[in-house]
C-alpha cells in the first residue's frame, strides 16, 4: 500500500540540477537538499492510525450493589503505529551528485534522487562535455592558481593584446584536439574513425587526462579576461592551472578569479535551481520538467528516425547527441 509519502517520493525520483554558490562545499549542498526533501516528505499527510478492539474492565460504581464484571469493547488506536513512535517514514534518501565542483567554484551541479542515480551513472558513462566560464586576471601568480592564494610572482601585462591571447588559445586547443584523437583508441586511418568523427562521437573512452575540446576568449579588458571552455574529464583545479599556463605562455602571469560551470551535459543554467529554491516543491517541479523533456526528446528522435526505418537507439546516448554536435560546431 502506497502512503502519500511514498507516492511523493516516486514523483521526486529523477535528475535535476542546482546552482552551487562559490565558497560552499558540494557535500553541504547535497546534505542540505536531502534534509529539505526529507522535510517535504515528512510534511505529507500520514495515514490514519489503525485501530484495534480491546476489552476494558469498567470499575463498578459504588452505589450499585450487584458487583458484576462489566467488560466493554472499545476500539483504540494502535499507538505503536503512531508517527511519534515510528518516526518519519523516510529517514534517508539516496541523493547522488554528478561531476563535482570544488568549494572555490560555482555553477551547475547535477543531483540525482532515488532511482535517478542509475540515470546519473548512465549519463556520465557517455562522456558528456561541460561548459565553464573562467575569470582570469593578469599580473600575479599564486601558489594555488586562484586569486585568494599566496602570491608567488608579479609581472607586467601591458604587452598582451587580444590577438596574442587568441593565438595562444588556438595553440592550446590544437594540442588538446590531438590528445583527443590519441585517447579515442581508434585507428585514425579506418572507416570507423571517419564515421565517429562525422557524428561527432570521437572522444576518450573511460578515464583520460582532462581534454579541452573548445576554448575561446569572450571578454578581454586587461588585466581582466574571461574564457569560455568546453572540456572532458576535467577538474576545477586543472582549469585554474590552464589560466596560469596561459599567463606564462603570454610572457606574463595570470591567476584565476572564478570558475563557473554553465552546462553539465544536457543541464544548462536555465534549469538550475538557485539557493532560495532548494525546497521539495521546487525540486518536484524541476524533476517533472526533466521527465517531460526526456519524453519529448525520445518522441522527436523517433520521428526523425522513422523515415529512415531505423530501430530507435537507447535514450541516454540520444540525449547527448545535440550537445556534442553543438560543441563540434564551435
Amino acid at each position: 500500500m502506497a502512503t502519500p509519502a511514498i507516492r511523493m517520493f516516486r514523483k521526486i525520483e529523477g535528475l535535476f540540477c542546482v546552482y552551487k554558490p562559490s565558497g560552499v562545499h558540494w557535500k553541504l549542498v547535497r546534505d542540505g537538499i536531502e534534509t529539505k526533501l526529507l522535510k517535504g516528505l515528512s510534511d505529507t499527510p500520514s495515514l490514519p492510525i489503525p485501530k484495534e478492539v480491546r476489552f476494558l474492565a469498567h470499575p463498578v460504581s459504588e452505589t450499585e450493589t450487584s458487583k458484576e464484571l462489566t467488560l466493554s469493547a472499545v476500539s483504540l488506536p494502535v499507538l505503536s503505529k503512531h508517527p511519534l513512535v515510528t518516526g518519519p517514514e523516510f529517514q534517508h534518501i539516496k541523493v547522488g551528485v554528478g561531476h563535482r565542483l570544488d568549494a572555490f567554484s560555482s555553477g551547475v551541479m547535477v543531483l540525482a534522487v532515488g532511482n535517478g542515480n542509475k540515470a546519473l551513472h548512465d549519463l556520465y558513462a557517455t562522456q558528456v562535455t561541460r561548459d565553464y566560464t573562467l575569470d582570469g586576471e593578469f599580473g600575479t601568480a599564486t601558489d594555488d592558481f586562484s586569486h585568494t592564494g599566496r602570491v608567488v610572482e608579479r609581472s607586467t601585462y601591458g604587452h598582451i593584446t587580444q590577438d596574442k591571447l587568441d593565438r595562444v588559445l588556438a595553440m592550446l586547443q590544437g594540442a588538446n584536439q590531438k590528445a583527443l584523437l590519441m585517447y579515442s583508441n581508434v585507428d585514425m586511418r579506418s572507416q570507423e574513425a571517419y564515421e565517429l568523427a562525422v557524428q561527432g562521437l570521437l572522444g576518450p573512452e573511460g578515464k583520460s587526462l582532462p581534454i579541452l575540446t573548445g576554448l575561446r576568449c569572450v571578454h578581454f579588458q586587461p588585466p581582466n579576461f574571461t574564457l569560455e571552455v568546453q572540456c572532458l574529464n576535467e577538474t576545477q583545479k586543472y582549469l585554474r592551472k590552464i589560466v596560469h599556463e596561459i599567463g606564462l605562455e603570454l610572457r606574463s602571469t595570470a591567476s584565476c578569479k572564478g570558475v563557473r560551470r554553465t552546462r553539465d551535459g544536457p543541464f544548462t543554467l536555465q534549469d538550475a535551481l538557485t539557493r532560495n529554491h532548494w525546497t521539495a516543491s521546487d525540486v518536484l517541479q524541476a524533476i517533472k520538467q526533466y521527465h517531460t523533456s526526456k519524453e519529448n526528446l525520445k518522441y522527436s528522435h523517433r520521428q526523425i528516425m522513422d523515415p529512415a526505418l531505423q530501430p530507435p537507439e537507447e535514450s541516454t546516448t540520444v540525449n547527448m547527441k545535440p550537445a556534442r554536435k553543438q560543441q563540434w560546431g564551435q
Partner: peptide, 24 residues
C-alpha cells in the same frame, strides 16, 4: 525499540498522547 512497549505501558501511551516524540 520502544514501539513494542507503547501499547502495554501506561506511561508511554500517555506520553505519546501528550505529544512526546518517543522515536527521538
Amino acid at each position: 525499540s520502544l514501539r513494542d512497549y507503547v501499547d502495554k505501558s501506561e506511561t508511554l501511551s500517555k506520553l505519546v498522547q501528550m505529544g512526546v516524540n518517543l522515536w527521538k
